[in-house]
Amino acid sequence: MTATAPSAPSPAGAGFARDVATVFQREIRPSLREPLGLILSLGQPLLLLFFFGPLLGGAQGVGAPGAGGDSSWQWFVPGVLVMLCLFGPMMSGYNLLTELLTGSMERMLVSPIDRSAMLVGRTLKEFAVLLAQAVLIIALAVPLGFRLHPAGILAGLLLLGVFGIGLGAFSFFLAMKSTPSGELFYGVTQLALFPLMLLSGVLLPMDFGPRWLQMVALANPVSHITDGVRALFSGAYTDPSVLWGFLAAGAIAAAGLLLGNRAIRKGVGV
């Protein structure tokens, strides 16, 4: 046996951080090598920003909670960012699914890399990508009339990031549960994403709708996150919707990470 001896085990914490970094770097490398893909995935949000956003200027009642008569852009930009958070992480669940259906995920599961680190590294990559895309969209919205409240922007991005991590972890969980056919993943993402988006008042205020629709939206955690980001982007830091937004995002992140971690520790096809 002339083979290389396995490296000595490092302290658990350092090893975990290392593994997270390895997974994160492996995940983000293709995006850095070909950033065009990230920009193309911004196509839909950008179209909305330029071709739909301006229409809202004339609509009565379009305004962020607690923001008084602030411009419609403070209301609309957060909606676009929430959409980004909904579709981006779900797309990366699809990437994981293809890695599960080929042998590449199995190869990682046979390696000594920490399995929780595989989940955390991947969700951190989602966080980083969302952050970069959100900053770009905000920058493009400024010339249109979006006003910058720096502290609110930071807090809002944090809120969106927590939401993105939760959804990312949840979509990884879904992908792992979908093997070997993948049907569960396609089914849930097809059926859930669009209603979640419509019922969060991303494009038009839920106040425009009938009472029953508003009640349904109230049960949708995404609508609370949307409202929270709107308040923060308008500088209304103490609006109650901020608290509700963080609670909703925190709950989604906790549930997603818990489920995702359990699934990845158990392995695939077990």
Partner: peptide, 24 residues
């Protein structure tokens, strides 16, 4: 494994590098 071990989104050289990292 029976199925292809390298992810289609990754370059061959990158996959080998990160495989080494995964093994410490």
């Amino acid at each position: 494994s029976q199925k292809s071990s390298a992810a289609d989104t990754q370059r061959v050289g990158d996959e080998l590098f990160y495989q080494g990292r995964a093994y410490g």
